[in-house]
């Protein structure tokens, strides 16, 4: 899917989420401005009053559809985008809003928040790939902006971009962090796709899987669970961690791993 247009048209759009991933794009700062000189920013409502173009060579999309209009919109966006790339844990895994699915009491959640529940959309939360085919995914909560930048550069040059299939532990060890799992903390880094630079374990916060699982976790998740059980964490406590960013269904192989991780030519 390389973009060989002279000036490719890129859009940055969003569904319901915290919008941190588009902030991360703006946080590229000078690099963003430089990049913007080589492309046409087709639609980026964060910095533009009106869309410049209707069709895009490359669309980054964050968030999950919740409103009925968003469920329509994502299909529309797919039609108008040559390459569609969901970004962030919400778009790739479901995000924190998917916790309600796992709880199994979404009506109760709705009634807890609102006295009047009429007309308030409350669908099951699904990643973008459950609604439309996607071409690549850049996950994390938030995304790693450097990864997105590298991806964009590569794809504009017609190169292949891969997220190496290495667990969080790879980067964590290179930073010479003390292993939190060995310390008895509930870190699920061994089965989670690296590429974030391991910011969480670097401050003593166990990895909670915002980037979703490695493509092939094999028996590693079962082994990890055994270690966690031995540390005293029960099944439910482990589930609560894998559910936090919506990745439990992917980690438990009930849904295909979202990180396809290779753009095909």
């Amino acid at each position: 899917m390389p973009l060989r247009n002279k000036k490719p048209i890129i859009a940055v759009l969003g569904m319901t989420c915290c919008e941190g991933c588009r902030v991360a794009i703006v946080d590229l700062g000078e690099r963003f401005l430089k990049l913007a000189g080589h492309i046409i920013v087709g639609d980026f409502p964060f910095i533009q009053e009106h869309a410049k173009k209707k069709s895009f060579d490359l669309t980054f999309i964050e968030g999950t559809p919740i409103l009925p209009s968003q469920i329509e919109e994502i299909k529309e966006i797919r039609r108008r985008s040559k390459v569609l790339v969901p970004i962030g844990a919400c778009a790739c895994l479901g995000g924190i809003q998917e916790i309600k699915n796992y709880r199994g009491d979404k009506e109760n959640c709705l009634q807890y928040v609102y006295k009047n529940v009429d007309q308030i959309a409350n669908p099951d939360i699904k990643p973008i790939s459950a609604y439309v085919p996607v071409d690549f995914e850049l996950t994390g909560c938030p995304i790693n902006k450097d990864e997105l930048f590298e991806f964009t550069k590569k794809i504009l040059a017609g190169d292949v971009f891969r997220v190496p299939q290495r667990p969080i532990c790879y980067e964590c060890q290179r930073k010479q962090n003390e292993c939190l799992l060995q310390k008895g903390l509930p870190c699920i880094g061994p089965v989670i796709l690296g590429g974030c630079g391991a910011p969480c374990p670097s401050v003593g916060y166990p990895c909670d899987g915002c980037r979703g699982p490695l493509q092939k976790t094999g028996k590693n998740f079962d082994n990890l669970k055994k270690i966690l059980n031995n540390h005293g964490y029960n099944e439910r406590e482990i589930e609560m961690i894998t559910e936090r960013f919506g990745g439990r269904d992917q980690i438990e192989n009930k849904l295909k791993p979202q990180n396809t991780n290779e753009n095909k030519n």
């Binding site: 319901t16 919740i66 916790i99 709880r103």
Partner: peptide
């Protein structure tokens, strides 16, 4: 035009 993520609802029972 934002969907409701029901944060207060999902925070219940969390650690």
């Amino acid at each position: 035009n934002e969907g409701a993520r029901l944060l207060e609802g999902i925070l219940r029972d969390r650690h």
